[in-house]
Simulated assay, not measured.
Amino acid sequence: MTNKKLHIHTALQILKPAHEVFQAIVDPAKMSNYFISEGSGPMEEGKTITWKFPEFEGRFPVRVGKVELDKYISYNWDGTDGTELLVEINLTPKGDTATVVTITEKEMDNNEAGLAWMMGNTAGWANFLACLKAYLEYGVNLRKGAFDFMKPEAQQ
C-alpha cells in the first residue's frame, strides 16, 4: 500500500444566492461576523492578506490564488508544521436562492501528524460552513465566544 496524501472535503447548502455567499467569503468585514476577528483586505487574486482569529495569537498570512466571481476561491496558507496547504472553495448555485459551498483543503502525508491535521481541520471547515450558514440565513454569529476556552489566558 502506498502512502497516499490526505485531503479534506466537506460541503453544505446555504439558502442564499451565490453572489451573497461569495461576498461573505471574500469581504473581511462580512467574514468577521462568522469566522475571523479581522482581515487586512478582501480576497483578491494574487494578493497576500492576513487574518486574525479571536482564539489564536498572531496573524496568519493567506496567499490568494484564483478567484472567479460567485464561483470559486482558492488560497494557500501554512499548516501548523509549516506545510503549505491549498484551500479551494467552490460555489454551486441551486436555483436562484441556494448555493452549495464545497471546501477542499490539501494535502498532508498519511501519518500521525497528517491524521491530526485532517481531524482538526475537517471539524474546523464544518464549523466554518455552519457559522457561514447561520450568519447569512439568520444573522447570528455562532463563533462569538465559542472558542474562548482556547485563548492562552483560559489555559491557566
Rank of each mutant, 00 (worst) to 15 (best):
M119C: 03
P42Q: 15
A123E: 09
G124I: 01
K16E: 13
D81C: 06
N33D: 09
P54M: 02
A29Q: 15
G82L: 08
E20W: 01
K94L: 13
I49L: 15
K52R: 10
L91Q: 02
L86W: 04
A134P: 04
A126T: 13
T50H: 14
N110T: 08
V26M: 06
F60G: 00
E153V: 09
I89N: 00
L15P: 00
I8G: 01
F60R: 10
A116Q: 13
F147M: 12
N76I: 14
A154R: 05
G120S: 11
K5Q: 13
T83M: 02
M1C: 06
V87Q: 06
N33H: 15
I25A: 01
G120H: 03
G139L: 12
N127F: 11
N33T: 02
K4N: 12
G41A: 12
D27A: 06
A11D: 07
Q156T: 13
R143H: 11
P28L: 02
K52M: 02
G46H: 07
S74R: 05
A130H: 11
N111Q: 00
F22R: 04
P152K: 05
K66W: 01
G39K: 00
K133N: 09
I89S: 04
T80N: 11
G124V: 00
T122E: 05
T48I: 14
T97M: 04
A11L: 02
T97D: 13
K151E: 04
T50C: 07
V21I: 11
P61Y: 13
E55I: 06
G139A: 12
G114A: 07
P54K: 06
T102V: 14
V62A: 07
G82F: 12
L6S: 01
D148K: 10
V100A: 02
V67G: 00
R63L: 07
I103Y: 07
E84L: 10
M118Y: 08
I25S: 09
T104I: 13
D109W: 01
E88K: 15
A113M: 07
K151Y: 08
L69R: 13
D109H: 08
Y75G: 01
G95S: 09
F147G: 03
L142G: 07
